[in-house]
Design a protein around this nucleic acid. Structure first.
Lengths: 194, 194
DNA sequence: CGATTCTTTGAAAACAGTCAATCTGTGTGG
DNA sequence: CCACACAGATTGACTGTTTTCAAAGAATCG
């Protein structure tokens, strides 16, 4: 179970991991199995864990006054998931995070993470790297939101993250893109005719 | 000139700055004056500097095939500006950054910054803090883009960053929001009547 | 003042959203 | 194994919002 996490850390850092580092990481991260539709975090709760997806697919979303869900992020294997803001400030989250497939996550409590994991230099290097990539991805998503049509955004997404389109139903993808499921359906059908 | 920068660093870190730290920072950052409309970075160039705005207002934008500008970010005093991706990878930038008012920036070359500035622990702490805030702000902007109307987004922006609305013309604000200037004009006029 | 930039307005067209109905595929229980 | 329920996808008609294009009215600056 932990091998994927270790490999992931190595992939995103240059500092080698010692045997002791690996031991420490293994102790802090425990496996949690989530069934489809099960929450990892529900609106109003304080996010307590750093979580790494080993298997499965999850979504992060808000629910507005009318009860409509707005997909904030989608994640699959080898992604971290959680509400950073709620976790670092211990404030109630506005987000919901649930499993869209049966999912296995490795979770570490904030205390364990801060005390034993984040001091490891490969880890802090990895976190900086991932924060950086995350910021770039968000920037790109904003760019496409403010300057591209629904159609272009869909094909951008489909080529950047093909696994999302394969593993999540269209109404979820539509919400991620900020359009309705009907519009997405029509966009796709128009394209077929071209 | 450097006092603002030093104050900014102190504000976003807990580690104290030594006299030597301050000296080092002052040596690395030199003042550059930009006139309105002058570029700090132009599409196709490699971003060479970390820049901190001491006075003035700048915009960061892309230009599409049709020649239309899309505002990616707006910045005023006490903000950092640059293309992080181009800077760290030494790749040609897709972005343009220019001054919207006569602007003073403190610039440090990448080499100087990496060698003399970023090792200062108050600085690395500050950078982490700012990266974190930046990611939150981007996340929030995405949330409003995918789930709110043009009107709500405008009023969100106006209350979060009133200085933007005061210092940039409406067509710039509209582009930042991903709507046309005509739509923004109408949104504002409708609101007055309510 | 004249030139430029910014803002507003109008009318038509394009686009996306809503609501309701139908169709499809999947899986569960009788 | 079938019937039924359920989730997802599609379609049509309608509504509403946003864009586009063109023109004209402020405001600002040299």
């Amino acid at each position: 179970m932990h091998e994927l996490l270790i490999a992931h850390i190595k992939k995103h850092s240059t500092t080698p991991l010692t045997v002791a580092d690996i031991e420490g990481i293994k102790k802090c991260f425990t496996l949690k199995k989530l069934r489809k539709r099960q929450f990892l975090l529900q609106e109003g709760e304080v996010c307590k864990y750093f979580a790494f997806i080993v298997k499965g697919a999850m979504r992060k979303y808000t629910v507005d006054e009318k009860g409509a869900e707005h997909i904030v992020a989608l994640s699959v294997e080898n992604w971290w998931i959680g509400d950073r803001e709620s976790l670092t400030n211990s404030t109630p989250s506005k987000l919901n995070i649930d499993a869209w497939e049966d999912t296995n996550v490795l979770i570490a409590t904030k205390d364990d993470f801060v005390t034993y994991v984040s001091p490891i230099s490969a880890i802090s290097e990895m976190l900086r790297e991932l924060d950086y990539r995350h910021a770039l991805a968000l920037q790109k998503r904003i760019g496409s939101n403010i300057s591209q049509s629904a159609e272009q955004r869909y094909y951008d997404l489909a080529s950047t993250y093909p696994e999302f389109v394969q593993r999540f139903p269209q109404h979820i993808i539509a919400s991620y893109l900020g359009i309705t499921k009907e519009t997405l359906s029509r966009v796709r059908n128009n394209a077929v005719k071209k």
